[in-house]
Computed example of a mutant assay.
Amino acid sequence: MSKNLVRVAFLDADTGAQIGRSELPVEQLPGSFQSATTLELAGDTWSVQGAEPPTAAQFAATGVLTLTLRRIESAPPGDILYSLPTLCASLPAVAPAPAGADRLELHEDDWRQVELVSADLGEEVQAELRAVRHSYEQHARRDEQGRVYGFRNLHVRSNPVNPLSRPVSRRRLLGRLPSDARNRGGIGFRGLRGIVPSSFAVSVGRVLLYGLTDGDALAVLAVRTEPGAAGEPQPELVAALELTMREADLLLVDWCRVALVGPASIDDYLVTIGAVGRN
């Protein structure tokens, strides 16, 4: 086989059956399958659920690529609804995980949906929040009780690119958390192998803190509520977040709820969303 050709096997994600084979020039294949990818096969559109190996450098070297696909069922455009009003535009890349490394898996739609941002980025934040409000006002679909069940369109956020404009120490933040805080390892995304380099995740009760680091400095600090019953009171966690927010002049942004929360209100916010209980 020519060094420029890659032998590609196509597998059905639902049945595991092989649905086709082909030899393709490496130049016609994406540089990576680590982000969402679709392709046309036998007149149908398929979503790539997994690739082995995932990058062009790897399958160009071996000359072999296996793609696991799921057929995308077509539907009239008016029937397609998004479940969220907004998504973050960019996801961090993943890399092979070190042996034995812990990995917390997120759905890619969850990335940076609730995050801490520097207060001096207020104009960027407000511009994005206005666009999310537009999704609710113009694109939300509601039931008879007025509850939103989907969106005809959503806003893809491109800002802030660097949400923390001032240094925030990861070591200092983690040192303030209660002793039962649990290290969850690095961040991974559902359907993708590997871990995001320089990522971290730590949980306290139902509250997950995760993000990206640059040495000891936090580059991204995000918050997620994990599934389960209503959270227990977490006074040490609340105090750690409030103190960190005050020291670094941070605000919490819940993009999907179109909420901007200051340090003094962080306890009320976490109680309202069920992440922690009231003391």
Rank of each mutant, 00 (worst) to 15 (best):
E115V: 11
R141D: 07
H139I: 01
G211W: 00
E144R: 13
N159E: 14
P197A: 04
V161D: 10
S158K: 14
F200Y: 15
N183M: 05
I187P: 02
R184K: 13
S179G: 11
V125N: 05
Q145F: 11
V125E: 08
E124Y: 10
E128Q: 15
F189W: 03
H134M: 11
N153K: 14
L173Y: 05
V161C: 03
V196H: 01
E123S: 13
F200S: 00
V207H: 08
R206I: 10
V125T: 09
S203F: 07
F189T: 06
A181D: 05
H139M: 12
V117Y: 05
F189H: 06
V117N: 02
L212Q: 09
R147M: 11
S165P: 00
A201S: 06
R190F: 12
G191M: 09
R166Q: 13
N162K: 12
G191W: 04
G122A: 12
R184Y: 00
H139D: 14
D214M: 10
D143L: 08
R170L: 13
R130K: 14
E123H: 09
L208E: 04
G186H: 01
L116V: 07
T213M: 00
V125L: 05
G175R: 07
P160I: 10
N153M: 12
I195R: 10
N153V: 03
S179C: 03
G194T: 04
G186Y: 00
F151T: 05
L129P: 00
R133D: 15
R147D: 11
G186F: 00
D214T: 08
R142H: 07
R133Q: 14
V161M: 09
D180P: 06
S179A: 15
D143M: 04
Q126N: 15
R141L: 13
L177V: 08
D143A: 06
V161F: 05
R152A: 13
D143C: 05
R172M: 12
D180G: 10
A119C: 09
S169Q: 03
G186I: 00
V202F: 02
R166M: 08
F189M: 09
P163F: 04
V207P: 02
F151H: 04
A201L: 01
L212C: 08
S169M: 03
S203E: 15
N159Q: 15
N162I: 10
V117M: 04
P197V: 07
F200T: 00
E123R: 13
L177A: 09
L174C: 06
A119P: 01
R133W: 11
R206W: 01
Q126Y: 11
Q126C: 10
A131S: 15
Y149P: 03
V207K: 05
S118I: 06
L174T: 08
V117D: 06
Y149H: 13
E123T: 14
D143G: 03
P163E: 06
H134V: 13
L154P: 02
R147S: 10
R152K: 12
R193Y: 04
R206T: 14
E144S: 13
G150A: 06
E128T: 02
S135P: 01
R190T: 13
F200L: 00
L209K: 02
R171L: 14
R182G: 02
V204P: 07
R166A: 15
N162L: 13
V202C: 12
S179R: 14
E128I: 06
N183F: 11
V202R: 09
S118K: 02
G185L: 08
R190D: 12
V125G: 02
